[in-house]
Design a binder for these strands. Sequence first.
DNA 1: AATCGCCGCAACCGCCCGGTT
DNA 2: AAACCGGGCGGTTGCGGCGAT
Length: 226
Amino acid sequence: MGRSPCCEKAHTNKGAWTKEEDDRLVAHIQAHGEGCWRSLPRAAGLLRCGKSCRLRWINYLRPDLKRGNFTDEEDELIIKLHSLLGNKWSLIAGRLPGRTDNEIKNYWNTHIRKKLLNQGIDPSSHRSIKEATVEEERMVEGFGFKNQKQPDEEKCPDLNLELQICPPSYQHSSPQPLEKRGREMLCFYCSLGVENSKGCSCSGNSRGDFLGLKNGVLEYRSLNMK
DNA sequence: AATCGCCGCAACCGCCCGGTT
DNA sequence: AAACCGGGCGGTTGCGGCGAT
């Protein structure tokens, strides 16, 4: 089953957006809201693909966007979030108000990657390049040929290796009841080492709000998607 | 002044997923 | 259950700007 194209490719503009197109899109969304992207271009009088309109709006025309250079604090936050989430740019963007996933992705690829490499850190694993290489060599030595089954796979075919996210300071073995452990747990910003940032909420009552984890439980709604 | 190569960023593409019919 | 649709995501591309030669 093939998919119908999102628009008539033959009759759509491509490439950079003109001022007039931007104005039309903004005016339409201000008047009617975002609504259905597929039908929006026709309704707004734009010869553009709906996806293209959506991207233009989300990445550049939305009024709540913060333009300009990334601050050192944002840099740190992106690096730490990336070490936890990997290339989940929309999740990372959800934690940086006014920044978009595309912007962060570009910034990562052009600036942060290089910065980490210069510091001898592998941007994928966030470990020192030396350490990562040694580990890789060990893997080859330990498991032999690449098609050979790994020991754990042999023993535990159903082993679930799903990633679990847990607050760094959370002590599973703590004898204290959860409500009394509150102060041991850091707020989201402190967990990432940016405790003096605007968003730091330690003084308030939001204990354990790490990556949207309330008392160690993932709260979806706090992980704003773009 | 002209050319070349590099870099950054805006935009596109293909795929996936969830919801609806 | 299958087909279809729209929205969203991550990877990639291509163009324009800018510095070096």
